[in-house]
Design a protein around this nucleic acid. Structure first.
Lengths: 192, 192
DNA sequence: TTATAAAGCAAGTATTTACTTGCATGTATA
DNA sequence: TATACATGCAAGTAAATACTTGCTTTATAA
């Protein structure tokens, strides 16, 4: 029995097990066991397995503060801003790691989940474009297509995140700081 | 009933359904149905469901010709070589799309699959490093760390591929040619 | 044409799984 | 103390699922 209320423990166990075994693979028996709870309690709280997983998804879908960061923490110095943004974005991906991987696993099964996850890079891209445009106005980066800059930045981040998450062959042993000081530094160098 | 031998049809149906529904979600009944085959035939051929999926995995794990390409088709012109390599790599990812997504879904369940998939970007990275090193020797690209170049190139490719595959929000409506002419062009511009 | 192999068909089995019901136990609040 | 509420426990149900067996039908090839 871990910490938190009964409800929290069930939700946490559900997220973890669905991530490990997939929706079908995570049985209610296993979830109850890992939550240190009787299986019946699970149905009394959420009605059905689907209800439980939906509750779990909802709980983990906290509103991302990435947009906020891009409006407050930015100091208009590309060498400070981008590393900071990568760090925040990777942290966000890490926090949502399980639910992102679930959405890759269970694509289609939970439409709301798809949309929810898709929204993250989308809003991020839009805000990034604004940032790059302003930097360009100020003459702090080269004149280029801001959309390309933004998508490339996201592809880099997402590619690194996923290759590190699962297929740890290219990005193995590459910490976020390594990624920032090597790969992102190279990216920055190319746009100033 | 699609084309091919009975065996081929079963394997094809297995790959597709496991990709759509996950290993547990793809029932033998469904697989048989989609293959236009009696369910018993499936067991007579492969003994068990696991046997079938393993056979399917093995069949789809053709040796990648990426290494070969990097040794034969290259003409030592970065503006021609990289687009060509992206195209080939994206085609490879596309061909292995289903099995790559399966390996993300069923990570851990089929260890051989993990290794198999992981090998693709790994060998690609190594070959790329050699290519970049030679280009540098010839003074055709700027002096930089070849490993960073190679990983960034792969992150871009993989990030694009996955965001396009599933979370189609950032990369939606972005064709491979768009990706090459915009994002990769920007990458090329940054290293010459 | 005949022998052989591959596939279909029907029926069944054991197990798992999501979910239910009835009742006992504990625990907090009025 | 009494009343509500949350949880545990035991037992069960209906459906689905992987897999089997025995027999018939179809296609291949000698």
């Amino acid at each position: 029995m871990s910490e938190g209320t009964t409800r929290d423990r069930m939700i946490e166990a559900a997220i973890k097990l669905v991530n490990e075994k997939g929706y079908k693979g995570a049985t209610t028996k296993m979830i109850a066991e890992r939550a240190g709870v009787n299986e019946v309690t699970l149905f009394r709280h959420f009605g059905s397995k689907k209800g439980l997983v939906e509750a779990a998804i909802e709980k983990y879908s906290f509103v991302d503060h990435v947009s906020e960061t891009l409006e407050t923490k930015v100091i208009w110095d590309i060498n400070k801003d981008l590393p900071m943004l990568v760090k925040e974005y990777q942290e966000l991906l890490e926090q949502k790691r399980e639910i992102i991987l679930i959405s890759l696993k269970e694509a289609g099964a939970f439409p709301e989940l798809d949309q929810m996850i898709a929204r993250v890079p989308k809003t991020y891209k839009e805000k990034l474009m604004v940032y790059f445009a302003k930097m360009m106005e100020q003459g702090k980066i080269r004149q280029t297509d801001v959309e390309i800059l933004a998508t490339n930045f996201i592809f880099l981040n997402f590619g690194y995140f996923l290759l590190k998450s699962r297929l740890n062959s290219v990005a193995e042993d590459m910490s976020v700081d390594d990624f920032i000081h090597q790969n992102i530094a190279s990216f920055i160098h190319s746009i100033i």
